[in-house]
């Protein structure tokens, strides 16, 4: 497998503050990798180093075989970057925006611009003013702008924030097509809905890369117990009672019910059976409507790692 990003012991300090703390990872050609973490966790600092905009304090990184610090021009010619905050000119049309940004990269080939329009599904909307377009369409245009110079690696910064699941799905279908065509994609986000779409997800916190794996593997390895959705009333009392049960890792309020995560599976040593939760609550005088098995989410993974 061709390695597109290789990061070794990458570290960046700002004074005493360690923004990125000895991180290591590799991304292969055609992969879609998510980089998940709260604001200030070191996501953006990492990306800035990968783009050669910021020198590391320690460690090294190569992108597409080029050293990002010594050959940053080579890197930047071959990567695309799409951000929510990216400037689309509102009073220009779709085509004018693309032509303008193409020009920034020295692309004047009309066929290339047309091809990009088709690729992101904006054919037929060449002459629409971008201010008249929905958020979903504007995101496609932003993607088109990031793709006009046919990059081999694409950085996406919260690409689908603020759109509904339908628009998000359509956008991701485009991304999967690009990846199938050999483009490598790195997505930074703090939204679980977005991270779920990535093939592998890295979790950043306080400058450290805490884990990187497929969403399925993260859920299995980090959440080693069961998830129970407990419908009991009153909720707050249930919260207190369940939090005190040995073997319960975490209890949270989830709207009209409680979400319980145990340390071990029900049939394993130290596991908690739903019947035990049921009788505990009933004996304390709470009404228990039902207890259902839940699926671990990436949010559960994140909260477990963040502890």
């Amino acid at each position: 497998m061709e390695t597109v990003i290789k990061v070794e012991n990458l570290t960046r300090r700002f004074g005493d503050f360690v923004a990125v703390d000895h991180i290591n990872f590799e991304v292969h050609k055609g992969e879609i990798v998510g980089y998940l973490g709260p604001n200030g966790s070191g996501k953006t600092t990492t990306i800035r180093m990968l783009l050669g905009l910021l020198a590391p304090s320690e460690g090294q990184a190569t992108v597409l075989g080029y050293d990002v610090f010594k050959q940053s021009e080579e890197v930047r010619m071959r990567v695309g970057y799409m951000s929510q905050k990216f400037a689309i000119y509102d009073d220009l049309t779709t085509l004018e925006n693309l032509t303008f940004y193409g020009g920034v990269y020295g692309i004047t080939d009309k066929a290339r611009i047309q091809h990009t329009l088709e690729l992101v599904g904006l054919k037929g909307h060449e002459y629409t003013l971008t201010r008249d377009m929905s958020t979903g369409w504007r995101q496609r245009l932003s993607l088109g702008i990031a793709l006009v110079h046919e990059p081999k690696l694409l950085f996406l910064d919260e690409p689908t924030s603020g759109v509904d699941p339908t628009a998000r799905r359509e956008f991701w279908d485009l991304i999967y097509e690009l990846a199938e065509g050999g483009v490598t994609i790195l997505v930074t986000t703090h939204y679980m809905d977005e991270a779920e779409y990535c093939e592998r997800v890295g979790v950043m916190r306080d400058g450290k890369l805490l884990a990187m794996d497929t969403p399925t593997a993260l859920k299995r390895t980090i959440i080693q117990g069961d998830v129970w959705e407990v419908y009991a009333h009153p909720l707050e009392r249930g919260l207190d009672l369940l939090a005190g049960v040995a073997g319960v890792d975490r209890v949270g309020l989830a709207g009209d019910h409680l979400r319980v995560i145990t340390r071990a599976r029900a049939d394993a040593d130290g596991g908690v059976r739903p019947e035990a939760l049921q009788s505990l609550l009933t004996e304390a005088g709470l009404g228990v409507e039902k207890i259902e098995r839940g699926e671990p989410s990436l949010e559960d993974v994140f909260l477990s790692l963040a502890k």
Binding site: G37, S161, H190, M192, E299
Partner: peptide, 12 residues
């Protein structure tokens, strides 16, 4: 909007 998962969890 724009808040990390831990803070969101607290808020909820």
């Amino acid at each position: 909007t724009g808040v990390d998962p831990v803070t969101r969890q607290d808020f909820w």
